[in-house]
Amino acid sequence: MKLALITDLHANREAVESVMAHAREQHAQRHAFLGDFVGYGADPGWVVDFMREQVLRGAIAVMGNHDRAVAKGPSPTMTNPARQVVAWTRERLDADQLAFLDTLPMALVDDDRLFVHANAFAPADWGYVTSRLDAIRSLHATDCVYTFCGHVHEPRLFHLSRSGKAGDFVPVPDAAIPLSPQRQWLVLPGSAGQPRDGNPAACYAMFDTDSATLTFYRVPYDHGAAGAKIRAAGLPQNLAERLSDGE
């Protein structure tokens, strides 16, 4: 089975449509969405409705910190621009859309795979996995062979051997990576809706469960149109600039 791993959509319709079209071309058979469906972007209603449809079709979906903030209110650690977008988004979602975000699970396990937005050791605290130590802590918290996380807007791959030796690297797009079941793996697909590694192209990854291989992809999309919507909505202007800069 080819499983598309898509995260941090951030209300970016243009990016989501481009990623989904690319995943279809790669013959994706199922999709896993790793949270943060809203926040930053100007199309929250469209993205939430899209996500509800995907879940009805059998997709995996977990809650992100921005989804939680829109459903329940922002956390004290959120930046001012993020809080502004949370308030703006809440005004544009109806009760059913808000309820969908509020009832998303924090994490899901499917066979030997864990799906979670932030990490496996304290999902509700929203801590980032940015180092080997973070990854080791997360992998020690689960028996699953494969952990798929969002939250970090840059693609990265961590691994941990049975002897405790850890490693990580930044993947090259379009190259299939074998993931040995003799190790544990933590996969960060990168953000579809707001990449932050200097490349504005949307990120996602595809896991082939039959061959146990993982391929990262970059998908160009019309970030100019997405940015124009942010400006027209009166949202913080730097959010539009981040899309074009990939930062």
Rank of each mutant, 00 (worst) to 15 (best):
Q184D: 02
S138L: 01
L157Y: 07
N199D: 15
A205R: 12
C144H: 04
G193V: 03
V152C: 01
A201R: 05
Y128D: 10
G150R: 04
P181K: 05
Q184F: 05
A135Y: 08
A124V: 04
G127K: 09
A205C: 10
L214H: 08
A124P: 00
F148E: 02
R183Q: 15
W126Q: 02
L139W: 06
L139R: 06
E154Y: 01
P173C: 05
P189Y: 11
L179V: 07
M206G: 00
S191W: 07
R196V: 03
G167A: 11
H117W: 10
Y128Q: 07
G127M: 09
A135D: 04
A192Q: 03
G193M: 03
T209I: 00
T215E: 08
D197A: 08
L157T: 07
E154K: 06
T142Q: 07
A175H: 15
L188I: 10
P173S: 11
V187C: 03
L160F: 12
R183Y: 15
A202G: 05
F115C: 04
C203H: 15
P178L: 04
T213K: 06
H151Q: 09
S163N: 09
D134V: 02
P200Q: 10
P200M: 10
G198Q: 13
Q194S: 05
V187N: 02
Y146P: 00
M206D: 00
V187E: 02
F207E: 01
P155L: 14
Y146S: 00
V187G: 02
A176M: 12
N119C: 09
A205I: 09
H153D: 12
Q184T: 02
N119E: 09
L188G: 01
A192K: 03
A175Y: 13
H153Y: 10
Y146A: 00
A166M: 09
G164C: 06
D143E: 13
V170M: 04
A176L: 10
L179E: 06
R183T: 08
T215C: 10
V170S: 08
R196W: 11
S191G: 07
E154S: 05
F121Q: 14
R183W: 15
V129P: 03
A118T: 07
V172R: 13
S191T: 05
A166P: 02
F115D: 02
V129R: 03
Y128N: 07
R183H: 15
A175Q: 15
Y146E: 02
D143Q: 14
H159I: 00
P178F: 10
R132I: 15
D168G: 00
F121H: 14
L179A: 05
H117S: 04
V145S: 03
S161Q: 11
N119H: 11
G127R: 09
A166S: 13
R162K: 13
W185T: 06
T209L: 10
G150H: 05
G198N: 13
T142E: 06
D134F: 08
L157D: 02
D210A: 13
F121M: 07
P178H: 08
